[in-house]
Write a protein that binds this DNA or RNA. Structure first.
Lengths: 217, 217
DNA sequence: ACAGCAATAAGACGAATGCCGTATTTTGAA
DNA sequence: TTCAAAATACGGCATTCGTCTTATTGCTGT
């Protein structure tokens, strides 16, 4: 049984190069199709998801490889994804792994190494180029680095919003907050909506955490 | 220039088997010596530290491979250590990497793979058997498992409950937590129910706050 | 006077949560 | 080996939350 391979790569030259490399192993691999970006990949998978492995570029328009990996592993968990890219920085490696990638190869990898990696990932392995493996070990040695820090921009919350946020942090629900502040629960909800928008979060937990981090409360 | 290799292995049969495997590549490798345990290894290194790579067993009397790895990387940071063992559980993998191992191969690996791994580690890579690579990626996906081990005594939460609580504190919802921990969302809800009961709270916010106050997370 | 913002209020709808069950499998310790 | 705890899994139901839309009132600075 040949392994069915798809690629996601925006650059035509590189995509053809990859396809050529895959073509060197006609007995093991079957090239299914190539997507030009993450969104295109999801569209193609929606039509034909009979793919075993996807070779995924990272930098792509429309939807990048990391987000695409997240989506694919969520929608088609049986499909193994191998990142195939020129980037070797720890951040991209880590985010790819977090997104669900099972392998990470550099684009200058020799054709037989890529084929070997595809076979390896199908057998439950995790093919990585040597430099990538070394960096992922470094990440494992420093788990603190994994806690992501954000660009410290200031958030302007109004006085009332800050009050609401404080109550929120105490674990009060909307009705309890409305009682505490003598306003309608609808108003509380509206304040919280605005807080979410300003802090760029979508639930109480993260709102309070972010507020604490930025010393708003 | 041949790569100078030493081994640390208590079992005579296995040690000879490893040495034989290394002997298949006389052009690349030079076998220096074999230690019978971690303490013996340190003694031998103290006399002759002109070693490039050490193939390290884990379970050994006197001093096990993980502690030996710690010592060697501390005293001789230029020496690359490859774990060569039958154990493939995540805990041993993680502790080996923490201790400073740069590679992790299983003992049933073919001779040429071992030789390849030795060369790879000398070039700054991180040779890993496929199953090991896959598990180290799993570890990277769940960093909080790596951090906590001890918790407060006021409330007794199980290890799993603490993991769930950690995810909860990041603002993940039930489904996201279930994805992160590879369990059903129903199970997540049950864990959270138990957490609430033990902490005597009734929602995420207060659970996390109480957990932080009591240094559980 | 008017634009802009903050604060207030309300309704609707789907998703998520909290709480009540039950039940099986795994694990660890005695 | 046996027993208890832990971890796993599933369903129902009422409530809460997150998001959308619309609208009124009051304050402030130009």
């Amino acid at each position: 049984m040949k392994i069915k391979v798809a690629t996601a790569e925006d650059n035509n030259l590189l995509a053809n190069s990859i396809r050529e490399k895959l073509g060197l192993f006609p007995d093991d691999l079957e090239f299914k199709y190539r997507a030009v970006n993450g969104a295109d990949l999801l569209k193609k998978l929606n039509i034909d998801s009979s793919v075993d492995t996807i070779l995924m570029d990272i930098e792509m328009p429309e939807m990048d490889g990391i987000e695409a990996t997240q989506q694919v592993t969520r929608l088609y968990p049986q499909i193994k994804i191998i990142m195939l890219t020129v980037f070797d920085d720890e951040d991209k490696i880590f985010r790819s792994i977090q997104a669900g990638a099972m392998g990470y190869l550099l684009k200058d990898e020799r054709p037989d190494k890529i084929c070997e990696g595809i076979k390896e990932v199908m057998e439950g392995g995790a093919p990585m180029s040597p430099a990538i493996a070394a960096k992922s070990l470094r990440l494992l040695r420093n788990p603190d680095k994994l806690i992501q820090e954000e660009s410290s921009e200031e958030f302007y919350l109004t006085k009332r919003e800050t009050e609401v946020l404080n109550k929120l942090s105490l674990g009060l629900d909307y009705l309890e907050i409305s009682d505490a502040l003598f306003i309608s629960p609808f108003t509380v909800r509206k304040h919280i909506e605005n807080i979410y928008r300003k802090l760029q979060v979508h639930n109480k937990m993260t709102a309070v955490k972010k507020a604490i981090q930025h010393k708003i409360i």
